[in-house]
Design a protein around this nucleic acid. Sequence first.
DNA 1: CTCCAAACG
DNA 2: TACTCGTTTGGAG
DNA 3: CATCATATC
DNA 4: TACTGATATGATG
Lengths: 415, 415
Amino acid sequence: MAKTETSPDAARPWQSYHTVYTNAKAGMDGVDKEKVQRIVYEVSKGSKFFENEERKEAFIRQKIENMRSRCAKITSADSSHYRTHKTVKSGLSSSKYICETVAEKRIVELEATRDLSRVWIHVDMDAFYAAVETLSNPLLEGKPMAVGSMSMISTANYEARKFGIRAAMPGFIAHKLCPELIFVRPDFKKYTHYSDLTRKVFRRYDPNFMAASLDEAYLDVTEVCTEKGTSGEEVAKEIRAGVFEETGLTCSAGVAPNRLLAKVCSDINKPNGQFVLPNNRMAVVTFISSLPIRKVNILTEKPHGQLYLQIGGIGKVTEHILRDALGISTCEEILQKASYICALFSHSTSGLELSPVSAQDMLLTDTPEVRLRKSISNERTFSATGDETLLYRKLDPFEVLKSIQARTLKKSTNS
Amino acid sequence: MAKTETSPDAARPWQSYHTVYTNAKAGMDGVDKEKVQRIVYEVSKGSKFFENEERKEAFIRQKIENMRSRCAKITSADSSHYRTHKTVKSGLSSSKYICETVAEKRIVELEATRDLSRVWIHVDMDAFYAAVETLSNPLLEGKPMAVGSMSMISTANYEARKFGIRAAMPGFIAHKLCPELIFVRPDFKKYTHYSDLTRKVFRRYDPNFMAASLDEAYLDVTEVCTEKGTSGEEVAKEIRAGVFEETGLTCSAGVAPNRLLAKVCSDINKPNGQFVLPNNRMAVVTFISSLPIRKVNILTEKPHGQLYLQIGGIGKVTEHILRDALGISTCEEILQKASYICALFSHSTSGLELSPVSAQDMLLTDTPEVRLRKSISNERTFSATGDETLLYRKLDPFEVLKSIQARTLKKSTNS
DNA sequence: CTCCAAACG
DNA sequence: TACTCGTTTGGAG
DNA sequence: CATCATATC
DNA sequence: TACTGATATGATG
Ligand SMILES: Nc1ncnc2c1ncn2[C@H]1C[C@H](O)[C@@H](COP(=O)(O)OP(=O)(O)OP(=O)(O)O)O1
Ligand SMILES: Nc1ncnc2c1ncn2[C@H]1C[C@H](O)[C@@H](COP(=O)(O)OP(=O)(O)OP(=O)(O)O)O1
Ligand SMILES: [Mg+2]
Ligand SMILES: [Mg+2]
Ligand SMILES: [Mg+2]
Ligand SMILES: [Mg+2]
């Protein structure tokens, strides 16, 4: 008892065990996070998975430490520059000074060229797989339910989310959090069917809409607004009504002057809601300032595929690093400390895809240029094995080909 | 089969599993290191200990990566300085430039003040515990033998070392390496007894000799040499003969102008040998140049204890870091790249105890100032437990006191 | 080129 | 008892 | 101040 | 089946 007072960290070890699925999603605001984390920790502790997470975590902490020290060096070097940089002619500026000017200049430039003239809508279905399953089995309505198995769940309905249950959480942990939780096996045929129905609606408003997954799409409704003389808000309402009429499913929408912001907005009033970010500079800048960096993710274009790829966001690891190494949590801070980010993260000069640096650009411009994919792949997972001969058999090119063909075949017969 | 050609690293995983006890000691030159490492790996793989070692190793690799990148930065910043530093007045020099001048200056200064006038001898018993045990049981002679248990061995005789067996190696692994290996339980009473006998000999040559452990001591025989008109080499021979006469045990000796070098030298012709490093600058500088950094370790003085403490060396981890981050393996390189070391390792400015920076100083001067201990402690280990109440009972101050008293009592009754 | 980590839904 | 799968990008060796 | 990593024998 | 124990210092939070 006395011990718990003197060492609270050691007494509550679950506070430092973070996973993708302990992070809050829409519909998880009222959740007792501490309790969820404790149960997740207790169920996970000691497992292979857990050990591996700890190993990775240790690695990241080391990375953060080094960043902090490099950062401190930059800061201390800084003061001398303030005193002397007026007399500097060339070659003597440190990386920090160079980055500061470059970063400031780019921010000013980008903010100047920000395009506020377009109206983008991002539509995202609510608890998609779960909602579809509820349609086909109305008995599930109102009860906490997850799509997946005891090993892994793909999504959970909003009743389940009240317990802290969400996509990417192992089913047996979800079961611990809510013993009444109902499990439904996934059925992709249904999901593609309903996805197709939603897209029919989207096509009415933007024939060139960009589908980013089965359950979400980006629509440029600028022309629709001007032609019909309506607002983005009205169009969003229409679309959502149309989707509901076609499918019986609810969705949420975000309206904003670019895709990145529209995506963020669609999450704000989930489920069955929408949020409009006015297209004036003041509103946009204010909105971005308080935006948690974790919300940011980028749509990269992929003109020859059916789907557009959503990556380039700031996930669990990068959020952790930015927070603990630079004290950055919001997008305002990411812009303020632009010089540090520029100094510490490799901009790569060429490909600014998956880095906080690119996030800066995107926040400001949501660059509309078409970004062609740089690689293409097709892979299959097989269950883990220590049996070497079995392994080589699995890796045999012919076997690989067969399993890929098997999938293609399955898809074509399913649809 | 085809796989092993394309990925040799994955096929020989034992090559990357390093421990203190896979490192060579005296008497392990002809050992098939690859084979030993393979067996150690195979026996260890999958154990808790092994997993933990891998976790630590990952951490260190991250540290090295960051060092390399910081190092690269320093190097690139460097070129501009070469071009401009002539015109620099103040405040603009980067850390690398400052370190370079400081480091160079210090090396020159220290090398100038190097004291070559003294004659130090370091004496270290051969396979000490094992040799004592062989004295009391001559049947052991000539057979591979280790002092310790199936869990851990404290030392092994030179017959056993041919199999790769050494101190700090778990007994069950040693058994795998050499099934005929004989195990003898340690008996400290015997070791302190024989240690006392050796010290009686040491005292004849230097009444102020410094004992660094039961089996080794540093002697300043400068006066003895001048008074008797003999060389350090002769005195070392006398001492070794005296020790053998008193105890029946062999020892090895190193003769050099300072303690650090004498300690290195005593290891060179083990067992039952000695090595003399002449006290002229040329010989010393040449010797240091090719000296592997791992051999370096420092004697810190502790005037109020019975024993002097030997720490401050470059061990497994620091060796790894210096090698992989800076390409440093020998003491020559450590002096050449002094500026990098100065830039990357915290000199701490005040306490230059356990760092490569201090190693530099020591290589040059073996600073003779008395370094007072900064702390004192007395600890007891108890067996691991998950039982919390038992844990608190063990940690109870009164229990701790009792167990410490128990040890003191045991010591006094033993001697 | 290979292997691995990060990110997305 | 159980901790996904497929796709893409970039970094390190 | 507490914990951990490093090093020595 | 088994991977030490006593000591000191420095880094980190
Ligand atoms: N980590 C995941 N692994 C596998 N499938 C996933 C994962 N995350 C989401 N999915 C699937 C199931 C989801 O119903 C569908 C759409 O994802 P997403 O829009 O993020 O959540 P959702 O539609 O279930 O809930 P909501 O959008 O209301 O938060 O994609
Ligand atoms: N890692 C260890 N753990 C416990 N005791 C040790 C360890 N290393 C050494 N000892 C004990 C046993 C040794 O006989 C004694 C002296 O150590 P040391 O001089 O390094 O080796 P040694 O005397 O056995 O062989 P050498 O001939 O190499 O000197 O200290
Ligand atoms: Mg959704
Ligand atoms: Mg979605
Ligand atoms: Mg010895
Ligand atoms: Mg010794």
